[in-house]
Measured scan of single mutants.
Amino acid sequence: MDEEYDVIVLGTGLTECILSGIMSVNGKKVLHMDRNPYYGGESSSITPLEELYKRFQLLEGPPESMGRGRDWNVDLIPKFLMANGQLVKMLLYTEVTRYLDFKVVEGSFVYKGGKIYKVPSTETEALASNLMGMFEKRRFRKFLVFVANFDENDPKTFEGVDPQTTSMRDVYRKFDLGQDVIDFTGHALALYRTDDYLDQPCLETVNRIKLYSESLARYGKSPYLYPLYGLGELPQGFARLSAIYGGTYMLNKPVDDIIMENGKVVGVKSEGEVARCKQLICDPSYIPDRVRKAGQVIRIICILSHPIKNTNDANSCQIIIPQNQVNRKSDIYVCMISYAHNVAAQGKYIAIASTTVETTDPEKEVEPALELLEPIDQKFVAISDLYEPIDDGCESQVFCSCSYDATTHFETTCNDIKDIYKRMAGTAFDFENMKRKQNDVFGEAEQ
């Protein structure tokens, strides 16, 4: 370990593993360490099931009705991949897709007046949907046509809207959309967690709705994908990429100290040895004095023996409960997957309800979601602090990732990755940087 590296990475969460992969592909010498004996950090999948019970201090362990412990891979952080989103792009560019198998999530649902409705995925579904009345549908269709044709580089498509100054509230007004449709559009399509976006320039919202539609167009059922064997497969896929390009991995490796000289990182000390480096990437748990708390998320993992009611017996789905429907500031989400994804025993389902904490009784906040899941065989409640770095790391060369937020997709995580890359490399992130180099010394032969 007593060696000189360009970059040392602490923690094998998804953000850290993707950055480690990119740095290795770009010719950097990388050492990647984790104090845990497993990959994934906060974003790991726990197996066998006995391990999950232990982690949540349920000492009696799983009953026999849960089947074989080894058949379970339970995500600690519930997220899906947008089919046309940035993480899929990263997987394709790096060819990490060859280590993973994905399934399309069967449906996306939205909560309205105590019931759940399928988010329409085709024009026919939209016309048949009970989510809105006849005239509302016509106006909504006009709005969707506007979004589909919108091109930020072609003012002819703006229809009198200025993407940089017109607020989204004004765009909704222009198409005369009612409150329910606005809730549905902002939260189930643009996937905002709160209503803060309404008074911001509309460009980002329009682009988010386009991303949803384009992702949906790829597979038809929903815009989301999920990897077989759980999300823990993602960091491992990128760790393989890093290793192929010469990255060194050490799990179960305690970090005793991060060594600084004149305010700059110069190395990491572990078990009496020092590895030197020019730059350091880590998750917040490794540098508690360089991060601040930015809120909390509650996630309740529920094991069920039945599909969720009114989802047409889907073996995977997402449910969004827009905040307006339950008098909150932030949406509540449910991600459900099952034995069909090799993450649970035969006939079992895993539904994870999550939201940003707003009160001193977080469990009560998630109740509307839990009511949709009854009866629940077993619950595991996790309340996590969200951390963000206190500075950009440019001076110390210590670059810290943000905690995983309450969103049900990876777009915010990818933004964090691109942002850290830019601060480390001094140049904007470009997907081309992730391409495997042809015929290089570490390149794998085609399968």
Rank of each mutant, 00 (worst) to 15 (best):
K379M: 04
Y197S: 03
P62L: 08
K278T: 09
K89S: 01
D430G: 10
L14S: 13
K142P: 00
C394Y: 08
C317F: 04
A406T: 09
S384M: 10
L177Q: 06
D257Y: 05
K28N: 07
R193A: 01
T15E: 07
D440N: 12
I209S: 01
S213F: 15
G113V: 05
I301M: 08
D289F: 10
Y333Q: 05
N73H: 12
D313C: 11
S338C: 13
K221M: 14
G263A: 07
D419A: 12
I244A: 15
Y197F: 00
Y93C: 07
K364I: 09
V25L: 09
V119K: 02
L386V: 13
E432T: 11
R240G: 02
K264N: 07
V266S: 01
R290I: 10
V147A: 10
G107A: 07
V119D: 00
K422G: 15
V366P: 11
A344T: 07
S65P: 09
L31S: 05
R299C: 01
N84G: 15
A369S: 05
K418Y: 12
I300Y: 01
S270Y: 00
N262P: 11
F442N: 14
L203I: 04
V266L: 10
L372F: 10
L91H: 00
G393R: 10
L304G: 15
L14N: 03
L198F: 05
L49Q: 09
E273L: 13
E16V: 00
L31K: 04
D385A: 09
M33Y: 09
D71Y: 04
C282S: 13
K422R: 11
K329R: 11
H341R: 02
D283K: 15
D256Y: 06
I259N: 01
K418E: 10
Y38H: 11
Y99P: 00
E152D: 03
C400I: 10
V255T: 14
D176G: 10
L304F: 10
M250K: 11
I303K: 13
K278I: 06
K221Q: 08
P284H: 00
E159M: 13
G232A: 08
V74G: 03
Y197D: 01
N327F: 13
N312V: 12
G230C: 02
Y111N: 06
C277R: 02
R436F: 15
T205I: 06
D440R: 02
L52M: 00
L49P: 05
G178R: 13
A369N: 14
D257N: 05
E159S: 09
Y219H: 09
T94M: 15
D361A: 11
R70C: 14
W72V: 05
E233V: 01
E204H: 15
D419N: 13
F238S: 02
F80S: 04
S44W: 10
D391N: 08
G160Y: 01
D196C: 07
R173M: 14
S108R: 03
I46Y: 14
F146Y: 08
E16N: 02
R173C: 14
I209D: 13
I303F: 07
D71A: 04
N84E: 15
G113M: 12
I301R: 07
D6C: 13
S65T: 10
M260S: 07
M33S: 14
V25A: 10
L231F: 01
E444K: 11
Q57L: 01
E3V: 10
T408H: 09
V326I: 11
N327E: 06
I308S: 01
